[in-house]
Design a protein around this nucleic acid. Sequence first.
DNA 1: TTTACTGGCGCAAACGTTTGTTCTCTTCTA
DNA 2: TAGAAGAGAACAAACGTTTGCGCCAGTAAA
Lengths: 334, 334
Amino acid sequence: MNISELAQHLGVAVSTVSRVLSGNADKYRISEKTVQRVQKAAEKYRVVPDPLGAGLRKGKLGMIGLLVPDITNPFFSTLARAIELRFRDTGIAVQLCDSAEDPATEIALLNKLLSRRLDGLIVAPVGEVSDELKSAVSNSPMPLVVLDRLLPGVSVPSVSIDNIKAGKLAANHLIESGHKHLGCLRGNCRAISDQERLKGVEEAMREAGLDPATLSIAGTGYTRELSLLSATELLTLSPRPSGIISLSGQGILGILEASRASGLSIPRDFSVIAFDEQPWSALMQPPITTITQPIESMAEKAVFLLNLEGRAKEVTPEVVEATLCRRESVAAVN
Amino acid sequence: MNISELAQHLGVAVSTVSRVLSGNADKYRISEKTVQRVQKAAEKYRVVPDPLGAGLRKGKLGMIGLLVPDITNPFFSTLARAIELRFRDTGIAVQLCDSAEDPATEIALLNKLLSRRLDGLIVAPVGEVSDELKSAVSNSPMPLVVLDRLLPGVSVPSVSIDNIKAGKLAANHLIESGHKHLGCLRGNCRAISDQERLKGVEEAMREAGLDPATLSIAGTGYTRELSLLSATELLTLSPRPSGIISLSGQGILGILEASRASGLSIPRDFSVIAFDEQPWSALMQPPITTITQPIESMAEKAVFLLNLEGRAKEVTPEVVEATLCRRESVAAVN
DNA sequence: TTTACTGGCGCAAACGTTTGTTCTCTTCTA
DNA sequence: TAGAAGAGAACAAACGTTTGCGCCAGTAAA
């Protein structure tokens, strides 16, 4: 039953029912008695205004879009949950899309989302910037905020950590522990975040008087197979880097697998730091030292920037703080 | 620009543009020339029929709902991705909701989803059945399929593993390895799946001549803290169970943490099997033996049952096969 | 008793499609 | 040459809301 049928049943106008059910009763001076009558009936027959009709009329659907590169990655699933939670009370639904770390899929999904009548869009890009992506993002007809892996050269509200700083944080921890020969396992080398983390590592080395040219770098791609391959590459180098940084959250799994396959032991044979805290980080043998991103606060800021109340748009990138979580996967060397 | 503006711009009727853009050109005998002209212009001005208007008219929105208990759980995030992927080509979007393992939230979200004009709904329930949940599910105005944790007594298409059989599978592996004193860490003890897995374990014990009364059981709830607590409880029993089964995917993390805290070593001090394969299962020290659910095939069957083409509804529960993945967390005892 | 005001509610347009029906041309046949 | 047939496209109703405006009755002020 829809509200016009309900109105007919009650012998009142559709508009009256609409006003009552959307909470605008007093704004339009509907008598308390009528309000009660309508509410009772609406409850009884379980009638709720159809979001489609309302959406069409209001030009909004009460729904935002969330595009992530990989919902399977704990970082993004935690983020997704945090974001959805924040919208729950406001009655706004979240439509999730997963671009599977593929730029082409990303563009296609983004365009589809942009053509839907959403209230806003939160995009965590794959990280590879194309002109098409840039123009799609910057010409968005709806509020849009970019999360995590930023799009350089696009003026749009965003929130992420300072990846250079985070890279330095990781490198410095290794350097302070006495490591001189560092290695990096990259995730997606076309992503700015990855590049910046790497840059941070190199800067830290320079500042510590180490030659960035001695940094061993491997890896491209997030799949299990690729990271295993690249990690093996890194571990079979001679001399083997004594301190390794996984620039992505999944990379560490490849490193662990490769380490095991090579019969190496952490942190005896090498130390390791991984980006992104995972549920199992502390439970590995040894517990893994991580660079932790403040997911809750990222979600909060993203939602704030999305700015559904219509306040002025912030285009200053919002930066949140990454922290080092020290565990036993990093050992001091002489 | 919407299609009526485009129509005006081209000097044709809206209906003509609509028919061209929705691929019904020949069905309504639109001349090839007009088709070309409309398509060209639509492409040029990037005009796509508004899903809201279309949805309102057609009574469908081209979107299904997916309700999961915890998107942070790898099992569900993998499932979500698999499902979304299968709908991608058909142009159907997936709206994700996370009930956070909370029955009340689940009801609220379910009702909200049911009142939206969706093409279908896939529900992976928290597992606690209430009359309200039952009636909401069975009175669904749209195609609906239940996934994973079933709702007994509700006649609705469903897909899951045979949890009793899976429980037996786990228990038998331990029993065959010589374990006589078993323990179970439950997830949500009100969920049928949990109860059935437990029943399977007990049956296996009985069949092997073991007294089910000797089975040690602990645990309720999926949070980190709760599973740590319950796992500790299990491990400090005396005598300590020599073979432990985590009935839920997250439980194993609690067991590992408790084991570490108690200075115990797996599988020297006790053996362990966990439900649900996780990305890190094979990378733990020792690699964890798991009961693996065929996620891809569950997604496939769920989508098939959702049956958007309007074929007859299957109400026979679809059962898929769980498998044992043997690793080193189970050792043979004398 | 008239005028002015206001509380309470209904009317109808608009949002952007889709689709059954109707209208207008051509062109072909008798 | 008249009529029919059919191709091509326009018309208009419907989908279910929201919302500006206007109507009516009752009350208070003059």
